[in-house]
Amino acid sequence: MEQTHNRVQHPPDNNLVWGILCTVLCCIPFGIVSIIKANKVNQLWMMGDHEGAYKAARAARNWALWGALLGPVLIIFFYIVFFVIYAGILFTSY
């Protein structure tokens, strides 16, 4: 009872901080999606869809997280690809 009462009182943490952090630190599309999701948390909560609000909050966090992880992974991947291409050019040109 205490738990449910608590849940009704407070909307879920909308994780807007992570969205902003992700956008400002260069993981563009994901960060903006995260901010939009964070905005949905509030709207769904106001409409009384508490389950949906929690889902949106989780989505906001996950988009920011994926953005933060994917940025470096992507860039390292491209480094490897270009390294292979350069190495290929180097060896075939002799």
Binding site: C26, C27, I28, G71, P72, L74, I75, I76, F78
Partner: peptide, 8 residues
């Protein structure tokens, strides 16, 4: 690490 968006 450079920005992936700017890099591409």
């Amino acid at each position: 690490l450079p920005c992936p968006f700017h890099y591409l």
